[in-house]
Amino acid sequence: MQELTTTRHNPQIDPFMQVWGWEIPVYLFLGGLVAGMMIISGYFIFSKRYKNTNCVTYTLPIISLLLLSLGMFSLFLDLEHKLYVWRLYTTFKISSPMSWGAWILILVYPVITANLLMDSPKFLADRFPQLDKIKNFIHERPVLIQNIGVGNMLLGGMLGVYTGVLLSTMGSRPLWNSSMLWVLFLISGLSTAAALVHMIAKDVDERELLAKADNGFLTIEIFVLALLLIGLLTSSSVHIEAAKLLISGAYAPAFWVFVVGMGVVIPLFIQLLAVNHKIKHTPIAPIMVIGGGLILRFIIVAAGQYSHYLNAHFK
């Protein structure tokens, strides 16, 4: 038997770490969602679907900007020294994923804005007539449009990858310390984005395409989740204990019911029926996918903080 007692009782640290509350999962979810929306929008531009005036690529930028700003506000709320937030932009630390993220976010805004300027929303175009000139300027230059598409896909990919790398570089938290985490967060971002865009797309062909794409993303997500758990289960004892948190531990009910069941398997089944024209497209499946993506971030952040070298030995 081994028994450990400690006199330490630091807030947010003991008995187990909970330094990141709801703000970080919300930020990671919205970051992933916006990343997915940028990749989808970029793809629609790159594949010349933007020539259809109903194309959803004209609706996505304003939603992306709003959601990303909401996510960044959530991140800001998490900071303990809020007035010093500008310190993020006085340096670039190559070893710090958070520093990379801060600068990626700065680059993401102009790229989404370029997408927005391809056809500004009516409430903006009415107020600022110059936006029409910019729109014409862009549409006279097909190469520029292609670059906006590529830029959105590239920066969207970087944003989606970063949300996972932020956690996976922390060797102290065995559950996060997996090279599969960025793949999971990127693919989850793509599936939640496809689900959201599916609900707001006006064009029937686009809706069909997005439902099929979402089925692909959800199928990949099942394999990625399995590989994440297999990777942990075939690693050291602390990693095995971390995997057990999701498989059979305290976080297992929420993980299996809300993430795997309601977030992936059931919506995949519903959408497979929809794309095969057995049932009508409904918003039920996309809403489940989005909810599952949010709960996935909450569970990974909470269980990751709980997973620890000592907790693995002293249960």
């Binding site: 630091n10 807030p11 993020l88 620890h308």
Partner: peptide
Amino acid sequence: IGCKACLASCPYDARFV
């Protein structure tokens, strides 16, 4: 800035806010 990344990255939980 109090981002708490260092708290999460420490295997000894030696830091606090």
